[in-house]
Simulated scan of single mutants.
Amino acid sequence: MRCNIEAMFTDIDAKNVQGFLSNLADNVVFQFANATPMKGKREVEQGVTDFYASIAGLNHEMTGKWEIDETTVLRFRTVYTRHDGGAIEVPCSVILHHAEDGRIDDYRIYTDLSPVFAPQTH
Rank of each mutant, 00 (worst) to 15 (best):
D11V: 02
I12F: 15
I12Q: 12
A14H: 08
K15V: 04
K15F: 10
K15D: 03
N16H: 01
N16Q: 03
Q18H: 03
Q18V: 01
G19K: 00
N27Q: 06
N27V: 00
V28L: 03
F30G: 06
Q31R: 14
A33V: 12
P37V: 03
K39Q: 13
G40C: 08
K41M: 01
Q46H: 10
G47D: 10
V48K: 14
D50N: 14
F51R: 11
Y52G: 02
A53E: 15
A53D: 13
S54R: 11
G57A: 13
L58Y: 06
L58H: 12
N59V: 08
H60D: 01
H60G: 06
M62G: 07
M62I: 09
G64T: 01
K65N: 10
K65V: 05
W66G: 14
W66E: 15
W66M: 15
E67D: 09
I68Y: 11
E70F: 05
T71K: 10
T72F: 02
L74Q: 05
L74R: 09
L74T: 11
R75W: 10
F76W: 15
R77L: 10
R77K: 14
T78I: 12
T78P: 04
V79N: 07
T81H: 04
R82S: 04
H83V: 13
H83W: 11
A87Y: 00
E89D: 05
E89M: 06
V90N: 01
V90L: 03
C92Y: 02
S93C: 10
V94K: 13
I95R: 13
I95S: 12
H98G: 02
A99E: 08
E100A: 12
G102E: 09
D105L: 07
Y110F: 08
L113Q: 07
L113D: 00
S114R: 09
S114I: 04
S114A: 11
P115N: 03
P115L: 03
P115F: 04
V116R: 02
F117M: 01
F117G: 03
T121N: 08
